[in-house]
């Protein structure tokens, strides 16, 4: 049995939620004051994911960097591998919002897309 302590992010209350786990099974969820807290806690202990937002090098454009994001949230423990892959990559202007800059980022199967347009210099 393992107990995980979380802070709920659904509202400013920030309930401290304790989740007791037995392997992958959730035994109990306590500390939440509403149903949204229960759902948040279950997702957060089973498969925490985050969208990574950063910038990528761009050549031949009016700017040197273009902002980008993982198109879907990636597993939380892959965040730094995703950052490393993005920092190794670069793209060429012109770039449009939504352009795929990396097809499969760091083996997550999730693409990195541009979040801003960069026109050619």
């Amino acid at each position: 049995m393992e107990t995980r302590e979380l802070t709920c992010i659904n509202c400013p209350m920030g309930c401290r939620i304790s989740v007791v786990m037995e392997g992958d099974d959730i035994i109990s969820v306590t500390g939440n004051t509403c149903k949204r807290g229960f759902v948040y806690a279950c997702n957060e202990v089973r498969s925490p994911v985050r969208t990574v937002t950063t910038t990528i090098k761009v050549t031949g454009g009016v700017a040197d960097r273009v902002s980008c994001k993982t198109k879907e949230p990636v597993p939380k423990d892959k965040i730094f591998e995703v950052m490393e892959a993005i920092n190794q990559a670069s793209c060429k202007a012109p770039v449009a919002i939504g352009d795929v800059l990396i097809e499969d980022c760091a083996g997550t199967g999730i693409p990195v897309v541009a979040t801003k347009a960069v026109f050619p210099a």
């Binding site: 969208t51 910038t55 902002s67 994001k69 801003k116 347009a117």
Partner: peptide, 22 residues
Amino acid sequence: CIHNGFGLHTFNEELTGPEYAA
């Protein structure tokens, strides 16, 4: 503001700052 979390009320989706401005 290249992070996400913009537009949840206006567009019902989570956008980054530049996307929201666009």
